[in-house]
Each structure stands twice: as structure tokens, then as C-alpha cells.
Design a protein around this nucleic acid. Structure first.
Lengths: 364, 364
DNA sequence: CTGAAAGCGCTTACAG
DNA sequence: CTGAAAGCGCTTACAG
């Protein structure tokens, strides 16, 4: 519909896309006409032709939780650097499970999905989708790339600090423990004790608690796990924390996410329990909240920037082919099945990002 | 490409869309074929035909800030109820100003935009876009609907509480004050004192501080405003807060966003300043952070649910016509210029949502 | 180097 | 009630 300057639409298209050969004269004439009528190309038509939207969905439980808001922010940033937009897909804030978002992926409304929420679907479900998916902090099935922090290292960092500082009774507050087994090839033994089995088939976050528990037990430190409800139930942490002090009067170290740790500090202040002298608190994640929780929290820090860059890299590769932003459109050679390029680099399909501990005011 | 069951594509389309008249026999035959080949309609083609993506962008400074993560979550939820998805458009997390997102709106990659970040563009810019825009907590130009809390009321709530409780020196910590005037028909007087002028042409958030200052002055309470840097500079609040105690040793009340207030509590604890006896702290916003900041903060609460429902309603109206989810497709009668339906209801184009104060542990 | 043609996958009038 | 046709606005081979 842009045949104003007496040229054909193909020429306009060539100019707009900077492709092909157009004489300078034509070029200028088209540019001028575009400016005059302030022509704006309709992206919808391109999308249809290219079978690309340049939109990637990120599935999280809720963006309200500081961990997921931080994660989403960095992932968005990183994707944007590659010309991809981020569609917010939260499962708790939208009465819609992940299935609806996967459906959108199937219907080509998104080019790919970053999956960072709990799922009740089995690996078959995920592998059969046949479109680009990157798993965050979870295993979704053979061939689906996965990115996450090295939670075993995280568990070790926490355990070793607590052991060194003389903790006797550690309480961890976290999500529903039954989720630990949904996708995990983990063999729980009788006494609530569990053992990590196969390296490649475990829900990664579980390893944090398992390693922690294992290390503490090995060193004769008592360890209890308290469930705080689903991750999207922010107030659930507060209740769980309050309960801990009643149930375990002799607790001398508490371990949770930033949010849980913040409640620990708050409740300890209220009960006039001296931190870190009588009670140590270690937060897991290291979002802004760790700096604003009444005391500067000691944290085991996730490296969000690195995590995001891995996620973006995996996603770009999975989407494949045609670069979205740069003019170098290499034709439609994208192949959905390239989502599961097998072991094309050292670590295979899993990126494990190191963690580090940062001392605050809540540990000795 | 769905002529498997020996029927024409039009029939398939009719079945998929549940429109027109199809015999039961045809219907079943098509359904069966769709199941067999597990056919998934390509949304891109529909988008092109309908000139609709069912995607709405929300422009925020950063999703990391608890206020904006909460706002985004509720808006997403509310939009989802109307069949609309939310595209995350943050200006601080993506090296891209709002212009890039507006461009996407122009190119029909989004159906509308919720604008909740600071802009340096003048009203002309916004009004000339001619596509659905809803402003949040700001005035973007004649004809652009706007939603926000009643910040004058917020200012009054804070002021009255502080006056009643005997505060003598109040310090507020907030964003750069020069932004206050960007879009505001506000006449600052000599002494740093400012007066709210025209009711319909003011950057709404400004009114909070102006009302607060005005009320406090009227009652002989000292008021100082300290700038904390841009809203996306989370650590900036911490620095600002630290500075306050040095500059104003006699401060006995501090007022800021949840995040700023959290830093106030933290710094006061560190300096062993008793809250609320020697120092009161009032937080503005009322996100989850107010419950996890070392003490339960007294807050002036934004009614996020109501704000979001107004935003969604305004957006639906601006986008107009064809319902996205329900089967009742009323044909393409959407009209971009319906974004500025003039004064079609009591309050005109502005929704002002009430606030309320919730007492915590940080006030007397 | 430029223009007319076919096609991306759907939808909706419009004839049979 | 069902099928052949035109069109959504662009892009890319393919002839001139």
C-alpha cells in the first residue's frame, strides 16, 4: 500500500529491509515518500511471512517475588540485546497454568519459552512440544537445555560456613518438599533422609537442600526443614518463620530465600534475639531485598547476569537461523528441532553457574 | 493446509472459530481430522487478518523495584482476564527508552501500551501516536486516559498522622524533583515552595509531596525533601537515607516509598535510634516489602487491585471492538481514535483511586 | 536495477 | 449448509 512515489511495493520493501540492489535515486525517492506519508511497516505481515514474532515468553510463578522479578529483569535485558522481547507469563498471577502459555508457543505467538516455574507435567509433555524451550533451574526432559546456579555449591557454602561458625541447630525454610520429587530421580530413604542419585535427572534446586542437609549431618549439626507453602504465597514465609521459633527454641541458624530470611530477621528483632550472636541468618538468592531487610543479610548470591546471558544464548540457539535485528537475514533456515542440538559443547545441555557467599551482618 | 478430511479450509475455519453454520456431521469430521493431525492454528495469520495481537505492553522503569513488580503483576492479571497478554517493556533494564516500545505499538506488534515510567517526551508526542495508550500516575496529553491513586489524599493521610503524633521535623526521600515539572503545570514559588495549580494538568505523583509539604508547613512542622536518584537506582535510596541522619540529626519522622522506608528502618536500627519512639517511618505504596523490612511498616497503601482493574478497563475500551477471547466476534469495528473517547463518564478520562493508611510498628 | 507475481496461513463475504 | 475466491500487508524469488 505504499505505491505513493510511483515505485512498486517490492522496491519499497527492498529499501525498508536494506536488502537487494536499489539505485540511490530510487532509494531517496522512497525514503522521502515514506517520510511524507510517515509510513510505518506493519510488523504483523512480516511476522506471518517469517514465522517469527521475536517474542519470548518467560514463565514464572509470580513477578512479585523478588527472586523472579530480578530474574525476569535480567533475562529481559539480555534477550533485548538480541532483539527479542519478553512476554510475561506468570502462573500464579493469571489463573492460567503453563499449558496456556505453551499453547501460545505452539500457535506461533511466541518464538520460545523460558520455563522457570514449577510444572506438574512430565518430561514427555515438554519434549513433545517441538518448539524452543529453555529450562531454568529444572530438568524438563531429554534434549531441553537447562540453565541454573550450581546449587550443590550453594549448599556447601552455607553448610561450611555454619559448621565453621559453630552452629548446632539449623532450620531451613523453603517450598513444599513434595515438589522435590516431581521431576527428580531422587531416592528418599526412610528417615526423611534423601540421597541425590543420577546427575542429569534431578530437579536442580533440590540439590541445595540435600547437600546442605548432608553436610550438616555429617558434622553432627541438627537440621530441620520447614515448609513455607508455595513460592508465590509471600505471606506464607512469615507464618512459617513465626512457627519455627515456637517449635525449635534452640535454633541458632536459619536459612531461607531472601524473603524468608528477611522475615527471620524481623521476627528475631521482635523477640529480641541477637543476630548474629544468638541466631545466624543466611539468605539464598541475593536480590535487592537482602540489602533492605532490617540488617544487611549474609547471602549466597546467584549470579543473575551470568544466568541471564546463558538463558539468552540457549534461547537464541534454540530459535535458530534468521537474526532478528541485524540486517543479515540469512533466509528461513530455522529448524525447530535444533532446540535439542545434542551435546554441542563441553557441558552438553546444562549450564551450571557458580555461586558465591557475600558476608553481611547476619552471620558470625 | 487443513484439507485432510476432504473438506475445504473454509469449513475448518468455521469449525475452529465456532462461527457460521456447519452440519454436525461436518463438524465431527473436521474435529476428528484436527485431532488426528493435531492441527494447531497459526495465530500469526489471524493476527494479520484481524490487525490484533492481543498483546499489551507495560512500560515501567524496572521490574526489580517492588512497586513496579507489584503493579505489573496485578495489571497482567487483570489484562489476562480479558484475554490480553502482557509484554514487559522496561526502560531501565533494556537500554531502550520508551520510544522503541512506542514504535512497536505503531508497527502493530502490540494492541496498546500502559505507560508507567517517566518520559521526557512532551504531550504532543503522546497524543500524536493515535493508538491505544493508558497513562499510569501521569498526564500524557489531552485525550489520553489516566489511572492513578489519589495522591493528594495520600499526602493528607501522612501529614495528618505526623501532625497528630507530634512530629517536629519530617524528611521525605524521593525521586529527582526536577521531574516533577516536566509535564506539570506547577508553579514553584521562591522558597522551594510550590503550589498545585490546574487540576487536570499535573503529574499526579507530585501532588503527594506538595500536599504533604503544604499541610506540614501550615502546622509549623519542618519538612525537608531529599533526592534519592532515579527510581530504578535501588541502592540510591540507601545512600540517600544514610545522608539524612548526618544532615538532619533532629529528624523525627521519615517518609518514603516502601524501599526507602525499609532503608530508614535499617539505618535507624544500626544507629540504635528507637522506632517509633524517637523516629517514625511511614512507607508509601504498601508492597510485600512493607511486611519484611525488619519491622512491619506503617504504610499508605495503594489499592493495586483497583488500580489494575481501572487500567484494564481503560485499555479494553481504548482497543475497542472485537472481543479477543469470547466467541462473540463482532467484526472489525475497532477504531484507533476511540482511544480518546471524550468524557464518556462522570470522572472524564481520569480514574482516581482512594488510598488508606495501615498502621504498622513504625509509627506512634 | 526495477516491476509483476506468488505466497506466508488464516478469515470472511460471496456464490453454489 | 459447503466450496472457490479474494484479501490481511508484507517478502522474496523470478522475469524484464
Amino acid at each position: 500500500m505504499a505505491k505513493r512515489a510511483g515505485v512498486s511495493l517490492s522496491t519499497v520493501s527492498l529499501v525498508v529491509n536494506g536488502a537487494g540492489y536499489v539505485s540511490d535515486q530510487m532509494h531517496d525517492r522512497v525514503e522521502e515518500a515514506m517520510r511524507d506519508l510517515d509510513y510505518i511497516p506493519n510488523e504483523l505481515a512480516r511476522n506471518l511471512y517469517r514465522d517469527r514474532t521475536n517474542i519470548v515468553g518467560i514463565i514464572v510463578p509470580t513477578i512479585r517475588h523478588p527472586f523472579f522479578s530480578t530474574l525476569t529483569a535480567v533475562v529481559q535485558h539480555e534477550l533485548a540485546r538480541h532483539g527479542l522481547r519478553t512476554l510475561l507469563c506468570s502462573t500464579a498471577d493469571a489463573d492460567a497454568g503453563e499449558a496456556q502459555y505453551v499453547d501460545m508457543l505452539r500457535r506461533h505467538m511466541m518464538d520460545g519459552i523460558v520455563m522457570a516455574a514449577h510444572t506438574s507435567h512430565a518430561p514427555d509433555y515438554w519434549t513433545s512440544i517441538g518448539r524452543p524451550i529453555v529450562a531454568f533451574d529444572r530438568y524438563l526432559g531429554a534434549g531441553i537445555p537447562s540453565v541454573g546456579s550450581d546449587h550443590e555449591e550453594g549448599g556447601r557454602l552455607v553448610a561450611h560456613h555454619l559448621i565453621r561458625s559453630g552452629a548446632r541447630h539449623v532450620v531451613a525454610i523453603g517450598g513444599p518438599r513434595n515438589q522435590f520429587h516431581d521431576l527428580a530421580a531422587v531416592t528418599p530413604t526412610t528417615a526423611g533422609d534423601a540421597v541425590v542419585s543420577d546427575d542429569n535427572t534431578t530437579f536442580p534446586t533440590v540439590r541445595y537442600h540435600m547437600t546442605l542437609e548432608h553436610e550438616l549431618h555429617r558434622n553432627g549439626v541438627r537440621f530441620d526443614y520447614v515448609e513455607a507453602g508455595e513460592v508465590y504465597d509471600l505471606a506464607g514465609y512469615a507464618h512459617a518463620v513465626e512457627g519455627v521459633f515456637g517449635r525449635f527454641p534452640d535454633v541458632d541458624a536459619m536459612v531461607s530465600s531472601d524473603l524468608g530470611a528477611a522475615y527471620c530477621v524481623q521476627e528475631a528483632l521482635r523477640r529480641r534475639i541477637a543476630i548474629p550472636r544468638r541466631l545466624q541468618v543466611i539468605a539464598y538468592d541475593g536480590t535487592f531485598l537482602a540489602d533492605a531487610a532490617g540488617m544487611k543479610l549474609t547471602v549466597v548470591q546467584q549470579d543473575f547476569a551470568t544466568l541471564a546471558s546463558h538463558v539468552a544464548r540457549r534461547m537464541i540457539r534454540a530459535i535458530g537461523g534468521n537474526a532478528p535485528c541485524s540486517g543479515t537475514s540469512g533466509g528461513p533456515e530455522s529448524d525447530p528441532s535444533s532446540a535439542d542440538v545434542p551435546g554441542d559443547e563441553p557441558q552438553g545441555l546444562t549450564d551450571l553457574v557458580p555461586m558465591r557467599m557475600v558476608r553481611g551482618e547476619t552471620t558470625r
